[in-house]
Each structure stands twice: as structure tokens, then as C-alpha cells.
Nucleic acid binder design. Structure first.
Lengths: 113, 113
DNA sequence: TTTCTGTATTGACAAACGTCAATACATCGA
DNA sequence: TCGATGTATTGACGTTTGTCAATACAGAAA
């Protein structure tokens, strides 16, 4: 069976909140983006990724510094991945995650003056 | 009994996620900030405030456009107010809310490249 | 004072969330 | 093949969240 790949048809990008009133649909989308940032564990994951010289971090290397169980880390990585903030790539037994700075800039742009 | 005013001793400001690994305390604080943005009703409140020529909007003027009950609007305004994103000022029977663009810029700054 | 209007709070409820133990899945080495 | 290791998923649990009806509070007008 062919692997399914989710394709996002709209850009989910964001004109700044501050420039025009948003309708409910845009607000829902943007709220999903900020929801991904609304958890301390996820923020630290992003921070660790940003600070990584290699630009990618193995799942196993999140567990100890974040003091959470492996399923919990995996859960948060999925949320970040679904929101487009990180991408995971399997290499042999390990999965390496990297930060999507473009997506992060989109969310920052939603707060632009 | 004198009215209690909560004073925030730290600045709750935010070095960018992207520049140094965050400890758990900083991550908690920042996550609270983004939690305030993680709801479509609250994003629309901010958007309406930003778009208001007078720079302030009466509570009563949120109810119709957002299609939520008055207690729900009040609830969201409290969350935004607690997180420092808006400020309310009572003038006779009405309470006028305004956007704190400095606080919004702090959160934007946490996502700076 | 009483009454009316605008706002905040309370209480209840369902839904969503964060967490972990147990388990399933994927990959490699023996 | 089998066993070991890294990751994802499932299921369960308590907590938090968003919502509204009812109510309380604040201010103005009669």
C-alpha cells in the first residue's frame, strides 16, 4: 500500500493579527499554530533544536534533558510536526528532528506590528 | 480592605527561543504567554483591538461580532489581561480594553531568528 | 431609594490536554 | 531466524480549558 502523504492546500500563512480583523477560520488556523507553542516541553524542544550545531537532534537526546518519558516526548514531537514546526527523518533506528524556521517565522509574522 | 494589586517582579520578557536553551522556568513563563494566543476568540479580540481607530473597544462591542456570550467574552478578556496583552479601564458603566503592543512584541521577540 | 444596564464571577458540564505504563512497530546485529 | 534497541501508538487517568446559565457587582438614571 502506498504511503499516504498529507498535502496542505492552503498556505496556513498569516497576515498579521494587527493589520486587519480576522474571520473565524483564519483565527482557528492561527490558534492551532500558537497552541503548538503553548507548552513548556515543546518550547524547550524547539530551543534545543535551534541550539543544535548539527541542526538536528535524535529523539533519544530529548528524553534526559526534558525529564519526560519517551512516549511523552514522542507525543510532543508529533504535535510540533503536525503544526509544521519540526520535521523528522528516520535514519536506521533513529529519528532525527530539525526545526522549520520558515514556519516559525510565519507565526512570528502574525504578530508583526 | 485595600485592594490587592499583583506586582510582577520579573520582566517576563523573553530572549528568543532560538538563541539559547531555555530552562524549565523560562519555558513555563513563555508557554503561558503563547497559551493566551492559542484560542481563536482571543486572537480575534486582539485583532479587533488592533484595528480600532480609537485604540480601545468596549466589552459590549465584542459580543456581537464574536458570537459568544458576554461571560465568555469577559472570560477571554481576563485571560488576555492576566497575560498582559490587554488592559481594561472602567469609565462609568463601560469597560474599555486596549492592546498592549509592547507585550505582544515581547512574545514576537521570543520567536526572533 | 429603586430600577435598569454593563461587566465580572460562580458553578456546572463536556471536550481537550499532558502524562505514563504497556504495547506495537521498525531496524539492526548476531 | 532471533533478540536487542529506538520510536510510535494505545489506553487510561487526572487536570485544564471553553462555554453558557444564573447570579453578583458596579454605575447611572429616575
Amino acid at each position: 500500500m502506498p504511503k499516504m502523504i498529507e498535502v496542505r492546500s492552503d498556505d496556513q500563512c498569516c497576515a498579521s493579527i494587527l493589520r486587519a480583523p480576522m474571520d473565524g477560520v483564519d483565527a482557528e488556523k492561527l490558534a492551532l499554530g500558537f497552541s503548538a507553542l503553548a507548552d513548556p516541553v515543546r518550547l524547550r524542544i524547539l530551543s534545543i533544536l535551534a541550539d543544535s550545531p548539527a541542526g538536528e537532534v535524535c529523539v533519544c537526546d530529548f528524553v534526559l534533558p526534558l525529564e519526560k518519558s519517551q512516549p511523552t516526548i514522542s507525543h510532543h514531537l508529533k504535535i510540533l510536526s503536525d503544526s509544521g514546526l519540526v520535521h523528522g527523518e528516520r535514519r536506521s533506528k533513529w529519528v532525527w528532528y530539525s526545526l522549520d524556521r520558515t514556519r516559525l517565522a510565519q507565526l512570528r509574522g502574525a504578530l508583526d506590528a
